[in-house]
Design a protein around this nucleic acid. Structure first.
Lengths: 219, 219
DNA sequence: AAAAACCTTAAGGAACTGTTAAGATGTTAT
DNA sequence: ATAACATCTTAACAGTTCCTTAAGGTTTTT
């Protein structure tokens, strides 16, 4: 189990590190939200849970959490802060946090809450289901409605779905869907168009790079 | 960057803490060498630098430093003391300290020496610390908000970000972003302008030289 | 004041994507 | 076997986005 600790207070980081490691977690620490987000988005690191401080220099915990959620990263987030005002709790939880703990906190309580979060999630973390799309053997279930897809369309959607929220380059799509067959790059565009016609505008174009499946309903 | 401050004089501890934190360091304080050494060897805490007072109750700074070095702990040590006798300096430096500063010391000098030590060790002090910016695959996260960037803009921002706080010359930008393509120098200006429009006035012009990404939010 | 460096804006073209349709190929029903 | 159908690919044209250059204005230096 990999846990990211995003916290700038060294004494807390060290405490958490010691305790979490003792409990059998792998701990990756980040002193700023930027670094953490960069690890996730630039380097594709994955975590089973995130312990996220609110008061951070630069991007704060609430903003970071909101960003994660907007991009479809469904990892359990335990928010940590010195603020105990009801309003702050609301803000934190509204941003997508799963739990909220105020400093000073009991380390045993934190562990208990963390275990609870992981249990609740069943343990599958970064980048799982909730996109409103499920691939079936005849096509896809989109917002509860069944849509028929052709083979290529289904494969294309599958790859995009596996990388939900992340940009997939045309080269990668050609490689994964067309397995290196000698076809023009433009076939991707055409199939994206067909997919869009069928499942709505959930596929975003990233100019000069490729495509990205985004969350939520189209338009 | 984490700095351990090992010092029993509270007024000095507080001064250092305030200043160092302001400079973007994480500070961990210890009132005795025993506690510091215990943190290092018993708990495996790691530091990028140590500011170590010589006159400490129990194990003194020189002994502590020697102990560190004997165990192969190669962290930069800046020794701090009221003793200005040459002999003491020699003892301190011989014990493995990297630099030596006598009280009363100027805080700016201390910072400069600390930076120098870190630089010498190859620690990247280019402050990967808070800038409020994270580059993503579609653009950048600026103060928690996603901003879409074009390819050139993103590359330009990436180079500036890698050198944040430092001036990057136009030649270097042309070389790193435009890879030696034969383009006019003016393209840099234009793209800087576009970047400024999108991420705010975080890019400072250094007349006759180039550009620099500055910390914090614009105005 | 002149010169140099920078800012700002806009236009043209290059590169990329959207869209449509036709032909090729393969599949199913008759 | 043949017709009807479905799918895939390519090609062509239209539309969009992006990059660079150019030109005139502003600021800074000499």
């Amino acid at each position: 189990m990999r846990v990211a600790v995003v916290e700038d207070d060294l004494s807390i980081v060290n405490l958490l590190k010691r305790v979490l490691i003792k409990e059998g977690f792998s701990v990756r620490e980040f002193s700023t939200a930027e670094r953490f987000l960069s690890a996730v988005f630039d380097y594709g690191e994955e975590f089973d849970a995130v312990i996220l401080d609110v008061m951070l220099p630069g991007i704060n915990g609430v903003e970071a959490c909101r960003f994660l959620r907007e991009r479809g990263y469904d990892v359990p987030v335990l928010m940590l802060t010195a603020l105990s005002e009801e309003d702050d709790k609301v803000k934190g939880l509204d941003s997508g946090a799963d739990d909220y703990l105020t400093k000073p906190f009991g380390i045993r309580e934190l562990l208990a809450r963390l275990r609870a979060l992981l249990r609740r999630r069943g343990k599958v973390l970064l980048a799982p289901e909730p996109s409103g799309i499920v691939i079936t053997d005849v096509g896809a279930l989109v917002d509860g409605k069944e849509v028929k897809l052709t083979g290529r369309e289904r494969e294309l959607l599958r790859v995009l779905l596996e990388n939900r929220g992340k940009v997939v380059s045309k080269e990668e799509l050609l490689q994964k869907v067309w397995k290196g067959e000698a076809v023009s790059k433009r076939v991707v565009d055409v199939h994206v168009k067909h997919l869009r016609d069928k499942i709505g505008d959930r596929i975003e174009t990233v100019w000069g790079v490729g495509y990205r499946l985004v969350e939520g309903a189209p338009e």
